[in-house]
Nucleic acid binder design. Structure first.
Length: 485
RNA sequence: GCGCCCAUCGUCUAGCGGUCAGGACGCCGCCCUCUCACGGCGGUAACACGGGUUCGAGUCCCGUUGGGCGUACCA
């Protein structure tokens, strides 16, 4: 391996709260770069214009920074191969797509989403794998020209060999063979003029001189498409490594419904970034015996990318907790510890805003902890008794919690105004008074009936923590309903 | 459905033909101790199943079962 030339990247999509899975893949790339003395680059993949937002991008950057993963090139600091945000690179992709079309490796497709949906429906019904049927492949050159001239919406698809298999080597999976007939005629350029992931990814990795692509295993099946695009463009593909995904306790892909997956959740609860990295790093390093408390530097030393498991490992928060505890007591000096606590308490203005909210509600300063502690607690220790003052049956409570939880996910920008608006809408929809909705939420979020204003508190706690508390509350309430309280 | 992949204690894993199947988290017990933690010591618990191959299989092969991922104008 030409160590000096190693360049790897993390390429997150800013379509939601920063995910621990992103940190997991980022850490792998970071360790890989560190191990080989290479460069670690950040690129924002926001080709999905409908879901990407600048706010999420900022959060992703902040979260990765919090993790301590420093990139040497990125949208915030620039670099020799910028810009590092795909939406800013829109014009860069055009010539590459054109080249593929001109060389007859791609074609324009005018099929509507509705037609494609029907087509796939029919294929599924017939027990066949859904694939583009190639309708627009047979369009005459004249027809294509005239329809393009009439600015009819269309996409560009890539052609796929009709027989044979795609063979390639993967750093984790070894030699892989995927038959071409299992590969669809992937869209390369969307109707809005934005490239798809596949197109943008290949062009950018080439232009940014990426040597090793390490990403989640969900991409393995797409490698043939990528290799083909490299071929069509006359480019040399990088080395691929597909990492096993972290799992929920039930082995499914780690998801926010079943686990706290938001990095901000771990920040809010007072996990140390070092501990989180330590924990994630353990997925890449097999410790047969001996010390598991490791810094990123130590992880890099022990890191062996040749020896990785293909089985997805379950995200075990208990082990994270153990590591975090050890980091707190063994790795921080008294001064460091105190400094961390202050920084943590001040995070997101929790302390300052919390005090403001509390001022009008206490008669003695000593009441403050009882009133505001829920802003800082990692576990409310919620008991069924806490709901005693709420006039609703367990079944009603459960219905409210289960309705509110998914609806809060729809809020784009998390602040007290949007939260209030959403809750009012829910109340109306359920035919209940706002108060009937808010009362149980109040308990779920704060753990008591006397506390700080709900909407403000929810904003301060952040979406991830609120999500988790509602989930816990739903469990508590469900146990009440189950026991026939 | 089809394609690819995976399979050792509850969880993370070591093992690369011969081990009392090792370590770590968790859990339990004991010790330490003004409480609680921490720490120390000990315990609990696994080779998914069925066929082969072999003197010998957790380790190799085949099948079954279970699970995962993919199958988008999302990444």
């Amino acid at each position: 391996m030409a160590d000096s030339a190693v360049r790897v990247r993390i390429a997150p999509s800013p379509t939601g709260e920063p995910h621990v899975g992103t940190a997991y893949i980022a850490l792998f790339n970071y360790l890989f770069a560190k191990k080989h003395g290479g460069e670690f680059i950040l690129r924002i993949e926001d080709t999905d214009a409908t879901r990407s937002t600048p706010e999420f991008e900022q959060k992703v950057l902040d979260a990765l920074k919090w993790c301590g993963l420093k990139w040497s090139e990125g949208p915030d600091i620039g670099g020799p191969y910028g810009p590092y945000r795909q939406s800013d690179r829109k014009d860069i992709y055009k010539p590459y797509v054109e080249k593929i079309v001109e060389n007859g490796h791609g074609f324009r497709c005018f099929c509507t989403p509705e037609r494609l949906e029907q087509m796939r429906e029919a294929q599924r019904a017939a027990g066949k794998p859904p694939k583009y049927d190639g309708l627009c492949l047979s369009l005459s050159a004249e027809e294509v020209t005239s329809r393009v001239a009439a600015s009819e919406p269309h996409v560009v698809r890539m052609k796929i060999p009709t027989e044979g298999t795609c063979k390639f080597h993967d750093g984790v999976y070894g030699d892989v063979e995927i038959p071409w007939d299992a590969v669809d005629m992937q869209v390369l350029l969307k109707a809005d003029g934005m490239p798809t992931y596949h197109m943008a990814n290949v062009v950018d990795d080439h232009l940014m001189k990426i040597t090793h692509v390490a990403r989640g295993e969900e991409w393995l099946a797409s490698v043939p498409k990528h290799i083909l695009i490299y071929q069509y463009l006359g480019l040399e593909p990088p080395k691929f490594m597909h990492l096993s995904l972290m799992r929920n306790a039930d082995k499914s892909k780690l998801s926010k419904r079943k686990n706290p997956t938001s990095i901000s959740y771990y920040t809010a609860l007072g996990y140390l970034p070092e501990a989180l990295m330590n924990f994630l790093g353990l997925f890449f390093i097999q410790i047969a015996e001996g010390e598991e408390l490791l810094t990123v530097e130590e992880l890099a030393e022990k890191f062996d990318p040749e020896n990785l498991s293909k089985a997805g490992a379950i995200f075990d928060i208990q082990k994270l907790d153990w590591l975090n505890a050890r980091w707190i007591r063994e790795k921080l000096s008294e001064e460091d510890f105190a400094a961390r606590v202050f920084v943590w308490a001040a995070e997101n203005d929790r302390l300052k805003e919390g005090l403001k909210l509390a001022q009008s509600r206490i008669s003695k300063l000593g009441e403050l902890p009882d009133l505001a502690a829920f802003l800082f607690k990692s576990d409310l220790g919620l008991q069924p008794a806490a709901f005693a003052g709420v006039k609703a049956s367990p079944e009603e409570l459960l219905e409210i919690l289960n309705t509110v939880q998914p609806d809060l996910e729809k809020i784009l920008e998390w602040n007290k105004e949007s939260i209030e608006a959403e809750l009012r809408a829910i109340a109306e929809r359920m035919g209940k008074k706002l108060k009937a909705i808010v009362a149980p939420l109040f308990v779920a979020v704060s753990g008591s009936q006397r506390s700080l204003p709900l909407f403000d508190s929810m904003e301060l706690l952040g979406r991830a923590v609120v999500r988790q508390r509602l989930k816990v509350a739903a469990q508590v309430v469900a146990s009440m309903a189950g026991s026939g309280k």
